[in-house]
Amino acid sequence: MTSCHIAEEHIQKVAIFGGTHGNELTGVFLVKHWLENGAEIQRTGLEVKPFITNPRAVKKCTRYIDCDLNRIFDLENLGKKMSEDLPYEVRRAQEINHLFGPKDSEDSYDIIFDLHNTTSNMGCTLILEDSRNNFLIQMFHYIKTSLAPLPCYVYLIEHPSLKYATTRSIAKYPVGIEVGPQPQGVLRADILDQMRKMIKHALDFIHHFNEGKEFPPCAIEVYKIIEKVDYPRDENGEIAAIIHPNLQDQDWKPLHPGDPMFLTLDGKTIPLGGDCTVYPVFVNEAAYYEKKEAFAKTTKLTLNAKSIRCCLH
């Protein structure tokens, strides 16, 4: 018999989150649709729960009410004593943790798909938090293969000092899905179709896995975050240069030392320094102006996964 890495157990509980950011409308629209008619997301033997994560922000069509829901799922915020004085999103995070967690427990949901849009030209993107997770690498390989020839990129946010504390991190297997470009507060049919297909293929993978299909060893190309880059700023902290036209919409493309990065209003080009080629992502993302992030630098690498098969009882 072929030796293989056996994944822990079959997958039982899956959640699909929309509206973690209330103005990213593809996930909101799909989740609302699936709450009314969820036939397309159901798979035999699998509990799939669509869920609106930040209903107040969705109602106002804004990213958040008090603070970013997708950055506060750490033990400090989840452990705060519940009171009306807490920011709305912290209270909501505790409610979500109660419903789908608790985080880092045996009772937490197996998989959470968190649906997002970006204003950046990132196409279909899967966000991975753990480079050693054979199950998710296999799932992402399946999704990428199923979507081809449509490109699907994998963004690895594993980093020693950049801690995200994402909404989906309460699950055993957290999956971020990011599709763009799409303006905030807008629905685009092409973007919706791409996100819908990503979810379909992900659920198909889980179904095949649960039925005992063995997935042979595989490898995927990923883009691992190195650092986030702020806009150049003046002495008052105001933005002093904008994304250069040569960099705009060039997510995932190589940016070499000396290539144009920013452009000042008086026409001066600010190039990339250093001696390493990087791959920019979230270029000129609207939501990241407040976070002082013009783009993120990534490096390209390959992740390998062992063969996996479900432990059938």
Rank of each mutant, 00 (worst) to 15 (best):
D66H: 10
A39G: 11
H21L: 04
R92A: 15
Q42R: 13
L156T: 06
P280H: 02
T44Y: 14
K200G: 12
L86W: 14
E293A: 10
Y88F: 07
K103W: 12
E214M: 07
R71E: 09
V154Y: 02
D114F: 05
L115I: 09
T166C: 07
Y153C: 15
G176C: 12
H5N: 09
H159D: 13
P50D: 01
E95H: 08
M195K: 02
N77K: 13
H21F: 05
Y231A: 02
S161F: 09
N284V: 03
V179K: 00
D251K: 01
K144P: 00
L156E: 04
A57D: 04
A240G: 11
T269R: 05
D249L: 00
D275V: 15
M139D: 00
N37S: 11
T166M: 07
F113C: 03
E8A: 12
F209S: 00
T119E: 11
Y153V: 04
V48W: 00
C276Y: 13
V175P: 02
K297Y: 06
T302N: 07
A294Y: 02
I112G: 03
D68I: 03
P181F: 01
Y223I: 03
H5G: 08
T53Q: 04
Y173W: 13
H313E: 10
K144F: 04
A296S: 13
N54V: 04
F113R: 03
P280G: 03
L136W: 00
D193I: 14
D249H: 03
R92E: 07
E238Q: 13
K306G: 12
K81C: 09
E95P: 05
L147D: 00
I41S: 02
L126G: 03
G237V: 01
N97V: 13
A296E: 10
H256P: 04
I96M: 11
T44L: 10
A240F: 08
K213C: 13
R63V: 05
L78Y: 14
P181D: 00
N77A: 15
W34T: 03
P87Q: 13
L162Q: 07
D110K: 05
S131Q: 10
D275P: 14
A202L: 02
T167S: 12
L99K: 07
N246G: 09
E95L: 12
Q94P: 06
F215V: 04
D230L: 06
T277I: 07
K306S: 15
Q138K: 00
D66M: 05
G19N: 03
Y223G: 03
G18R: 02
F17A: 06
L187K: 00
S3K: 12
K163E: 10
E293T: 15
H256A: 15
G273K: 14
P181R: 02
H208M: 14
R63N: 08
D251L: 01
L46I: 10
I11S: 04
V31W: 00
E227R: 04
P102W: 08
Q12E: 11
E89D: 07
E129G: 14
M198Q: 03
G38C: 13
L147T: 05
N304M: 09
K297S: 15
A202S: 07
K197W: 09
I226L: 14
R63E: 07
F51A: 08
L30M: 08
A296I: 12
Q248G: 00
H207D: 15
C61W: 08
P87K: 12
P181L: 01
I6E: 10
V186H: 03
I127C: 06
V278R: 03
G212N: 05
Y288R: 07
E238S: 14
K59N: 12
L312H: 09
D66C: 06
I6P: 08
C218A: 06
D114S: 06
E235G: 08
D190E: 06
S105P: 15
P55Q: 10
I157A: 15
H244S: 08
L46F: 15
P217Y: 04
C67R: 15
P216W: 03
C310R: 15
F29C: 14
N133K: 04
T299M: 12
D190M: 04
L136P: 01
R132T: 12
P102E: 08
L265C: 15
N210K: 11
G258A: 10
Q42N: 11
R71Y: 10
F140Y: 09
D266N: 12
K13R: 10
H201M: 07
I127Y: 15
R92V: 12
M139N: 00
M261D: 03
T264L: 06
V229F: 03
D204E: 05
E290V: 08
K60N: 07
Q94Y: 12
D230M: 12
Q250M: 09
I206C: 12
K49Q: 06
K291M: 13
K197C: 12
N23V: 02
C310D: 05
G101D: 09
Y279W: 11
N246S: 07
G123Y: 04
L255Q: 05
H208R: 10
H141G: 04
R43H: 05
K59M: 11
Y279S: 02
R71Q: 14
H33T: 15
P151F: 03
A294S: 05
R233E: 12
I72A: 10
L303I: 10
G273L: 10
G27E: 00
K59T: 15
V28Q: 14
R309N: 08
F215E: 01
P245V: 01
R168V: 14
D251G: 02
L86A: 11
C218F: 00
Y88V: 07
L156M: 10
E293W: 14
V58D: 05
P254S: 06
H116T: 05
V278F: 11
N54K: 04
E235H: 12
T145L: 14
E95G: 09
L136V: 08
S131E: 06
N304H: 12
D104Y: 14
T125S: 14
L263C: 11
G176D: 03
I177M: 11
N70H: 12
I112T: 04
T302Q: 10
Y231G: 02
G267V: 03
A240L: 11
D249P: 01
A305I: 02
A305D: 01
P216A: 07
S161H: 15
L265P: 11
F262P: 00
I16G: 02
E211N: 14
R63K: 14
T167R: 09
A294M: 02
R63G: 09
L192C: 13
G45Q: 09
P280W: 02
E40C: 04
V179W: 01
V90A: 09
M198A: 09
H33E: 12
I239E: 02
L156A: 06
V281M: 10
I65T: 14
S169I: 04
E8Y: 09
L25S: 14
K32N: 10
G19A: 04
Y153S: 07
C67Y: 09
D85G: 07
N117K: 00
C276S: 13
P151W: 03
V186T: 14
K224H: 10
E76K: 10
T166L: 08
Y142D: 00
Q184P: 15
P50S: 09
L265R: 12
I137G: 01
A165K: 07
L69T: 06
T118L: 11
I143M: 06
H201L: 11
K300R: 12
K59D: 15
M195H: 05
P183R: 02
E235W: 07
L35V: 10
L263V: 13
K200E: 07
L187G: 05
K253C: 08
Q12M: 11
I308H: 03
F295I: 03
M195R: 00
N23Y: 04
V278S: 04
C311V: 14
E89L: 04
N23A: 05
L303T: 03
K306P: 14
K300S: 05
K228L: 15
E47S: 12
C218S: 04
V14N: 00
T264N: 06
C67N: 15
D275Q: 15
R71K: 12
T119N: 14
K253N: 12
N246M: 10
C310M: 09
K197R: 10
K60Q: 11
F205I: 01
K253T: 09
K81V: 14
T299H: 08
A202M: 03
Q250S: 14
S105G: 07
I127L: 11
H5Q: 08
N236H: 15
E178A: 12
D66V: 04
G267D: 07
C61S: 12
M122A: 12
V186K: 00
L162Y: 15
I137K: 06
T167E: 06
P50Y: 02
M198K: 00
A15W: 03
L150G: 06
L86Q: 13
E227K: 06
Q248R: 02
Q42A: 08
V28R: 08
E221Y: 03
V90C: 09
D259A: 06
E89N: 05
L203Q: 00
E211P: 01
L78W: 14
R233W: 04
G273T: 13
N210Q: 07
Y173G: 05
L203E: 02
L303Q: 01
I239Y: 04
E235P: 12
R71G: 13
D259P: 01
F100C: 14
